[in-house]
Write a protein that binds this DNA or RNA. Structure first.
Lengths: 200, 200
DNA sequence: CGGTACACCTGAGAA
DNA sequence: ATTCTCAGGTGTACC
C-alpha cells in the first residue's frame, strides 16, 4: 500500500478533525481521468453539465460576470488531509469546454494520479462555498455508497453563491486571509479557514 | 551562396554609406536563436541580463515608466542594408522574461533565419539611441574578429549610457522628426533618419 | 477563417 | 534545497 493510498482511504479515520466535515459533505460529481487529464496538457476537463451546474462562470447576468468569463476564476478545494488546493477554472471557447488549468498538474503529481483514476468533488451541505476534492484509484469502489444519490435537489441552491472576490497569484501565499484584490481572476476561497502554506 | 548570405557578408563592402556607421558601432550582445525564437511563437526571448542592461523598460524613475513597463515599447533597429525594423519589446510577467514580439516574425522570415543562426545587436557609439540588428548563419565566424573582445569591455562602458539616461523615452521620441505618436507603446525611433515605408 | 499578436503558464535545468 | 531563467507552450482577441 502506497503512502498516497494510505492517505486516501484511511484519512476518514486518521484525521479526526475532518470526520465532522465529511458527514456534512454532499457529492457533486466525479470523473474518471483521461490520459489528457493527467498528461502534459496540465488541465482537467470538467464535463459541461457538471461545470454549469456546480461551478457556473456566468449565468447571463451582466457586470462583473463578463470579467469572470473572460478571465476565469480561482476555485479552492480542501483535500482529504485538509490541505487547500487552488485551481484556475475557466471556459475554453475554442473547445467549448470548462477546465481546471493552473494548479491542476501539481495536484496530479502530488496524488500520483493516472488515467483511469477517479477524482470527485464535494461541497459542504450548509456552508456551500466550502468545496472538497478527493480521488481514488482506478477500479476501487467509492467509499460512500450514498454518493450518487445526492445531487439534483441541491443544484438550484448553489448557483447564487458564486461571486467575485479576487486574489492575485503571487500574493496568495503571502497571506492566508487574502486581503488583496486581483485584477484578473474572480476568486472564491473555499478553504480560507484552513491554514495551509502552499505554492500555487 | 544565397541572396541573403550575400547581403549579410558583403554588405560591409557593398553599402558604402554604412561603412562609416559600422566603425562607430559597438556590440551589445548576440544570441544564438532557439527553435522557438524562429518558430511559431513569433517572439524572441532577450536574455534578462542583456535586456535589463541595454533595453531597460523602466529605470526605476516612476511615473510614465509604469506605463512603459505595462505596455512595452517599440524598438527600432537598422539592419545591414539600412532598413529600419521595428519590434514590440515587452516584459512577460508570467515567465519573467523580456521579449520582442510584434514584428519579429517578419524579420525572421525576411532573413530566412533558422535555429542556431545568430542575431546580434549593436548601437552607435556616439548616437546611443541608434540601434542596429544583424545576423549570421549558424557556425559562421563573427565578421569582426574583435567583436568578442570588444563586448566584454564595452559592457561596462555602455551600461551607464542607458541607465544614466535622464531623458525619458517619450521625450526623446518627441524630439525626433518622427511625426506619428503611437498610442500604445513608448517608442523611440532609432532609425528616424532612414526613410523607410514599412508595415509594422 | 487563418495568421498574427498578446498575455498567460510550466517544466527542466542552471545557478 | 530553493530560486531563477527561459525554451516551449497555451487560449483568446483581433484583423
Amino acid at each position: 500500500m502506497s503512502v498516497n493510498h494510505y492517505h486516501n482511504t484511511l484519512s476518514l479515520h486518521q484525521h479526526h478533525q475532518n470526520d465532522v466535515a465529511i458527514a456534512h459533505r454532499e457529492s457533486l460529481f466525479e470523473k474518471s481521468l483521461t490520459p489528457s487529464d493527467v498528461g502534459k496538457l496540465n488541465r482537467l476537463v470538467i464535463p459541461k453539465q457538471h461545470a454549469e451546474k456546480y461551478f457556473p462562470l456566468n449565468n447571463g447576468g451582466g457586470g462583473d460576470d463578463v470579467a469572470t468569463t473572460e478571465k476565469g476564476m480561482l476555485l479552492s478545494f480542501e483535500d482529504e488531509s485538509g490541505k487547500c488546493w487552488k485551481f484556475r477554472y475557466s471556459y475554453w471557447n475554442s473547445s467549448q469546454s470548462y477546465v481546471l488549468t493552473k494548479g491542476w498538474s501539481r495536484y496530479v503529481k502530488d496524488k500520483h494520479l493516472d488515467a483511469g483514476d477517479v477524482v470527485f468533488f464535494q461541497r459542504h451541505r450548509f456552508d456551500l462555498h466550502r468545496l472538497f476534492i478527493g480521488w481514488r484509484r482506478r477500479g476501487e469502489a467509492s467509499s460512500s455508497p450514498a454518493v450518487s444519490a445526492v445531487s439534483q435537489e441541491a443544484l438550484v441552491n448553489t448557483t447564487a453563491y458564486w461571486s467575485g472576490l479576487t486574489t492575485p497569484y503571487r500574493q496568495v501565499h503571502a497571506s492566508t486571509t487574502y486581503p488583496n484584490i486581483h485584477q484578473e481572476y474572480s476568486h472564491y476561497d473555499a478553504c480560507a479557514r484552513v491554514v495551509t502554506v502552499e505554492k500555487l
